[in-house]
Design a protein around this nucleic acid. Structure first.
Length: 488
RNA sequence: GCGCCUCUAGCUCAAUGGCAGAGCAACGGACUCUUAAUCCGCAGGUUCUGGGUUCGAAUCCCAGGGGGCGCACCA
């Protein structure tokens, strides 16, 4: 049975003491008693005096112990780095000027039985940092900062959206028909119903069902799952903000993105003039708006458009080393040319507008440009931060788009992953008002705000290969085991 | 999935074909104002794993595993 207490009465956090007694002079005592708690980060026993740094989630404060005034002094001076301690004593500032708790009573709250890293250099091995985030968090201040930033980012987004009348909702993670994005889903199985279900790749189609139901402004912070490769910018599960606003179009979404992102920068970083990876980034609105074909033309010096004949587009693709498939129409060719030649060159912020209809099965036709849809992607710090469009509201048109995707899939186009969602079509038949929708990758947004290069640094427990030699390594989960899967 | 790089003490790193080392942490000791305290002492190894070459391998070669970066897929 453990001999550590069940609770501890803390009266103050380290940071609030630091603030409150900032003016206390060196060598002065306050006569005020305080109780603090946290983890011992450094300990400097020096004979009959010991100076230790206690860190809690707010900051750090020194514990000043002495054999003359501290209970169980010898034991205290032998504590290990990493031990959790509850400490009570008088708030003083030492002769050398460090605000301290002059330790009277203390209690061990948890023993750190495993060794700590180098107290100066910390833990830098990325493998340890990601697998044992608890180690990373106590050892590395930047890591603590990033997760605090993530929390504040999500919190501010909620506040901003709620202020604008958006309602937060939750929609199914387990879906019968995975939809709303071009991505391969994870498959799982429901035992009682004896059927496969998919982990959602996007909440989009359910959120729009809610708009059909009369919820005019909805949003969800949705964990989504995509069965794709891992990289510095991709984790198989990630968090997406999706929102839908009735009576709005994609122009309204551009304004919303500008305001949302720039105010987050202002509130969380104090300025809209950031740097990312050492390169300046000015987020103050308005952001440039340019059509996709216009941007491609800027970068390759050749005029292209959705009306450009397919053979000509294929030739341009070939000129730039863009591999193409014979089944592609002008829209897919145009998108591929953009992605391979132009996208990586953009730094932004810029709204890349008016995508080909062929590659946008859920977006509404452009009001004046046949073959295009009213869709944009905000490019910020050289990467796609999100995706938005005026929503396709017509049920018959949506059915045709779904069927075209399904046909391409049947024809062997592995990139067309969308299937016909009959229930969604039925919902549209009840009437979806004009609406615009927006998706923003929260992980990437936090990377942007925190000047972080790797998505694993903004996800507390990123997906990793199994570690060898630990429970779970090679073990099979219980149940029916590997059932036969029909080809998909 | 493919390519390149990488893996040495608890942590951070040396040792480039010839006795596996240092700093920090741990452990023992000294020290009544420290700030990565200082000083003395002591201990610490499947050099990721398995093969191979060699008189001799942390080092060279092959295979496997983890990680990083890039590509592909994608947001």
């Amino acid at each position: 049975m453990s001999d550590v207490p069940y609770r501890f009465d803390r009266t103050d956090e380290a940071a609030s003491l630091q603030t409150r007694f900032a003016e206390l002079g060196a060598g002065e005592e306050t006569g005020l008693s305080t109780s603090v708690a946290g983890r011992l980060m450094l300990s400097r026993p020096q004979g009959k005096l010991t100076f230790a740094e206690l860190r809690d989630s707010s900051g750090a404060i020194q514990l000043f112990a002495g054999s003359a005034f501290t209970a169980r002094y010898d034991e205290f001076s032998r504590l290990s780095l990493g031990d959790w301690v509850g400490a009570t004593g008088e708030v003083v500032r030492t002769r050398r000027g460090e605000l301290s708790v002059k330790l009277r009573e203390w209690v061990l709250l948890a023993k750190a039985r495993r060794g700590f890293g180098d107290k100066w250099r910390g833990i830098t091995d990325p493998d340890v940092r990601y697998r044992q985030r608890y180690v990373d968090l106590w050892a590395n201040e930047p890591s603590r900062r990033v997760f605090a930033l993530r929390s504040r980012t999500v919190s501010r987004i909620r506040a901003i959206l709620e202020l604008r009348g958006f309602v937060e909702v939750e929609t199914p993670v387990l879906q019968l028909v995975p939809g709303g994005a071009d991505a391969r889903p994870f498959v799982t199985h429901h035992n009682t119903l004896d059927m496969d279900l998919y982990l959602r790749i996007a909440p989009e189609l359910y959120l729009k069902r809610l708009v059909v139901g009369g919820m005019e402004r909805v949003f969800e912070m949705a964990r989504v799952f995509r069965n794709e490769g891992l990289s510095r910018r991709h984790n198989p599960e990630f968090t997406m903000l999706e929102l839908y606003q009735a009576y709005a179009d994609y122009n309204d979404m551009m304004v919303l993105v500008e305001e949302l992102v720039s105010s987050l920068a202002r509130e969380l970083r104090g300025t809209t003039s950031l740097t990312y990876g050492g390169r300046p980034l000015d987020l103050s609105p308005p952001w440039r708006r340019a059509s996709l074909s216009e941007l491609v033309e800027e970068h390759i010096g050749v005029a292209v458009d959705i009306d450009t004949p397919v053979p000509q587009l294929a030739a341009i693709a070939a000129d730039h080393g863009v591999p193409v498939s014979a089944s592609w129409g002008a829209g897919k060719l145009l998108l591929e040319i953009y992605e391979k030649t132009t996208e990586a060159e953009l730094w932004g912020p810029v709204f890349v507008c008016d995508y080909p209809k062929e590659v946008s099965p859920l977006a509404r036709d452009h009001r004046s440009r046949p073959g295009l849809v009213e869709r944009f992607e905000p490019i910020v710090a050289g990467r796609e931060l999100g995706n938005a469009f005026s929503e396709l509201v017509d049920a018959d048109e949506q059915r045709a788009r779904f069927e075209e995707q399904a046909a391409r899939r049947a024809a062997g186009d592995t990139e067309a992953t969308m299937v016909v969602d009959e229930d969604y079509l039925r919902a549209l038949e009840y009437g979806l008002p004009p609406a615009a929708g927006l998706g923003i990758g929260i992980d990437r947004l936090v990377m942007l705000l925190g000047d972080v290069a790797n998505i694993r640094d903004v996800i507390a427990f990123p997906t990793l290969r199994p570690e060898s030699g630990l429970p779970g390594d090679g073990a099979q989960p219980g149940g029916a085991g590997e059932a036969e899967q029909p080809d998909r």
